[in-house]
Amino acid sequence: MEHYIMNLTLKVWKQKNPASNGKFETYQVKNISSEMSLLEMFDVLNEQLISEGNDPIAFDHDCREGICGACSMYVNGRPHGPWHGTTTCQLHMRAFKDGDTIVVEPWRANAFPVIKDLVVDRTAFDRIIQAGGYISVNTGNAVDGNTIPIEKEKADKAFAAAACIGCGACVAACKNSSALLFVAAKVSHLALLPQGDPERRTRVLSMVAQMDKEGFGSCTFTQACEAVCPKEISVTNISRLNAEYIAGGLGSDKDYGHQ
């Protein structure tokens, strides 16, 4: 692959803390290699800012190989930037050309308040999982793994849903700030497997109730979530969640605390 060097203008959201008002700052970066990742370009910029005595830009990142789900930049009007099926950390600078202006914003949703600069609070996702995103099996209870044969097609679908990394791009992209793709991925993953069957009804109802409490919106099937999902989780999972919700809601006599 041929590589090249570029100079870029960056417009980045800076916000000192949750309470303060943020604003966009403009930065110039020079001699950026097309072989760098976007975050490495941010490393270069931060080193430059530190050496100038300025505050570096805070952003979430950890594994830098597209699997931990920490990185979360909204780049040029798209969560995780222009590449399809890619996390911010895997977005490489060859996606840009010399002289480009890159606008970087944090995930925007009331349920994801900004902590600082590009760092947002996504603990709402943990609380949704707490509401039922698991199979209740205490350690030591398990039977031999091969006593439960699982149809390959179902296992593959469950795996595809389980690939969710909990980054929140779906919420960031959705015009309603809905977390339904995230919730649906977990509901589908567990509903498709026989192990998840006993808690199937309560799981979907509790998770949807928690999602609503956290202040996420509802789904209009614009499919923007699927388009930006770094793991390409399909919106058909949302359909499956709806089916689960209907079956669970009609079949269960328990209250779930919807407002």
Binding site: Y74, N110, A173, S177, T220, T222, A224
Partner: peptide, 24 residues
């Protein structure tokens, strides 16, 4: 309700990236 879920919007809008204008 849905529009109130994002009090601060984006500077560069998503627009129709990944979705059709009429669905939005």
């Amino acid at each position: 309700q849905n529009t109130s879920k994002r009090k601060i919007g984006y500077k560069v809008k998503m627009g129709t990236k990944g979705s059709t204008w009429y669905s939005k």
